[in-house]
Simulated assay, not measured.
Amino acid sequence: MTTALITGANKGIGYETARQLAARGMTVLVGARDADLGRAAVEKLKTEGADAHFIQIDVSDEESIAQAVARIDAEFGSLDVLINNAAITGGLDGNGKPSSTTLAAMREVFETNVFGVVAVTNAMLPLLRRAEAARIVNVSSEVSALTYIMDPDHALWQLTGITYPASKSALNMVTGMYAKELWDTPIKVNAANPGYCATDLNGNSGFRTAEQGAEPSVHLATLPADGPTGQLWGYLWGEDEYGQLAW
């Protein structure tokens, strides 16, 4: 039995990731803060034949994380895949430019998108180490990459808000450092770029579907032994294909 925990999996890209992994024969642990929404997602997955289980977890609450670890340990004994998918945008302060950004907004977004990933990963690592060859996938974004953000000829040049992009840039560094720590182990750690998908995160304004957005995470979660580690991989803006992105 191969088990995969996906945080923020009750809807959007997280739900589609769980659905696709279940279709590949994995036992999927649907992580969500809201118990009603999480259980509803599990029931929906089960109608498609998925071996799905609800795991209540708030990535910004260490006690909640500890309880999730205890349950996974008791019921499954190990964890093969961790997908840190839960994230928030935090909205825009003032005119959306860096000079009008509040520290409160920055702290709120980093609490979930960065600190939450570190807290969950550290807590789950003992379970991941028990697996034969675990995979850790951190869901990032192309807006994290300074290579694109600072290119006047790139579509992302127009972005000026700093809360969400900065949190994803930090997440990339977190991903790289975990990959280095686990370099000589069977565990691979990568960041996934779903692309600009229509989800609640952006008011459903994206041009890709949540199903498409899940594909990079699923790919990285099912890497073979000779697959890469320490990469940002996924949708390549404007190219309609997948590959390694610049940091």
Rank of each mutant, 00 (worst) to 15 (best):
L171M: 15
G116H: 00
V81F: 11
E215S: 12
G227F: 14
A9Q: 05
S140K: 01
E111Y: 12
M173Q: 07
A4E: 02
Q244G: 08
L5C: 14
M106S: 06
L245H: 09
L232T: 01
I65T: 02
A134N: 04
W233H: 02
M124I: 00
E111S: 09
D151V: 09
D151T: 04
V174D: 02
V28G: 05
D184F: 12
L223W: 14
P216C: 06
A133I: 07
A214C: 05
T101A: 13
S167C: 10
G161N: 08
I187G: 05
A155T: 03
L82Q: 00
A225M: 08
E181Q: 09
A214I: 03
Q212F: 15
T47I: 14
S100G: 15
E108P: 02
Q212I: 05
V174Y: 04
N85L: 09
D61P: 00
E142C: 12
V174K: 00
A170R: 01
S167Q: 05
M173W: 10
T102G: 08
T229R: 01
T101N: 08
I149F: 15
L103Y: 15
A9R: 05
T222W: 14
Q20S: 09
A214M: 07
E111N: 03
G213F: 13
Q67D: 09
S64L: 06
P224W: 12
A4W: 13
N122H: 10
D226S: 06
E211T: 03
R71L: 11
G31A: 07
G77E: 06
T199R: 05
A221G: 08
D80L: 06
S169F: 14
G91T: 03
G206T: 08
I55Q: 07
I55T: 02
E108H: 06
V59E: 02
N122R: 04
S100I: 07
V117N: 00
G38W: 10
G14V: 10
A210P: 08
L171I: 04
S60L: 11
T7S: 11
E48T: 07
I149A: 11
I162D: 02
Y164F: 14
T2D: 10
L182Q: 02
Y148A: 02
V143H: 10
A41R: 01
P98M: 12
G203D: 12
T7A: 14
K168N: 08
A246F: 13
R39H: 15
G243F: 13
L171R: 01
M1T: 04
A145H: 05
A68Y: 12
G227W: 15
L125S: 13
S205L: 14
E215F: 15
S100P: 04
L232P: 00
D240I: 01
R19H: 08
T3R: 04
V28P: 01
D240T: 01
A68V: 07
Q158I: 14
R24N: 08
P126I: 04
A22I: 03
V143Q: 05
A214T: 03
